[in-house]
Amino acid sequence: MSKENLILQSISKRFGAVHALDNFDLEVKVGELVALLGPSGCGKTTALRVVAGLERQDSGAVKLGGRDITNLPAHLRNMGMVFQAYSLFPNLSVEENVAFGLQMRKVNKRDRQKKAGELLELVGLNTQHKRFPHQLSGGQQQRVALARALAFEPEILLLDEPLSALDAQVRSNLREEIRRLQLSLGTTALFVTHDQEEAMAISDRVGVMSHGKLEQIASPDSLYNNPATEFVAGFVGVMNYIPGYQNGKSVSILGSDFKVKNSSGHQGATSALVRPESITVVAKENSSNAVVVTRSFLGASSRILCKTLDGTLIQALVPSEESSELIPGAKVQVKISANEVLVS
């Protein structure tokens, strides 16, 4: 459908004293789903709105392939956007909502009804086409909004936290569905969210943002395994901060030495960043270095929260069948099963 890459070139945007976007660069390739992830106020929504033309940047350019669309008004940009919630027109039926974009493009009534029907079928709501938005559940409304945004075959699909107002169950179903549709239609999509699980689950690449800048953009796997900065590491997945002592390129934590991944040559006290699954916990009466505080059963694995002798709390993810002895109060030995670690 869309044939060109979306390119944002050094976009800056200020709201009063706040830098919502600070020399922001981004490229989304054809057919790709890129998520912008970050805490609220990091500028991710502003970036999306700049792409849609709903917000005017102070400087920088927005391009579709070689075409500069910086000065193109929003209603001519041909981008389909799904909003957080309640964006359906309450005076129009579901079908009319979905057909709205086509009507604005002067598509005749028969064709747009047909197309709306197809889209509603795709989101599983073809039996509801005569209903009005207020008669639908939140999840259904967002499906209609998705169908509406896709109906006119937009260059780019923009998703502004489309799942944030929904229940957990509906949320995970709908996010799979968004991905399925995006893949099958081959639509290029930009997806904004503050929920790292959501971003990691369905994106080709995830861009982690903070203070109007892109901290890192990479595939979910490499973001998780090779976070470029401490911020990314902390924001994506669960991270333990274990105090240790850095000696140039190695760091000593819990009595063992590890290679420092992001070597800064720093000398002195530091914190090592370790994922829960890189930590092993074994019950050991004698040579223990920690005590179990809580054990949460999660199914195949269990989350064990331990407290080391110096008072640091450490989270570990342990296969459930190996964790039956790790009850609160048990004396345990905590070890790190990685070769390299990040330090802060």
Partner: peptide, 27 residues
């Protein structure tokens, strides 16, 4: 009148007049 409605209409290709005729005034 929600801001989302103006923005959604604009995003879907409606100009100001079309927004008012199809959405704003009927509402």
């Amino acid at each position: 009148l929600r801001r989302e409605w103006v923005e959604a209409a604009t995003n879907l290709g409606a100009n100001n007049l079309q927004y008012w005729l199809r959405i704003g005034i009927p509402l």
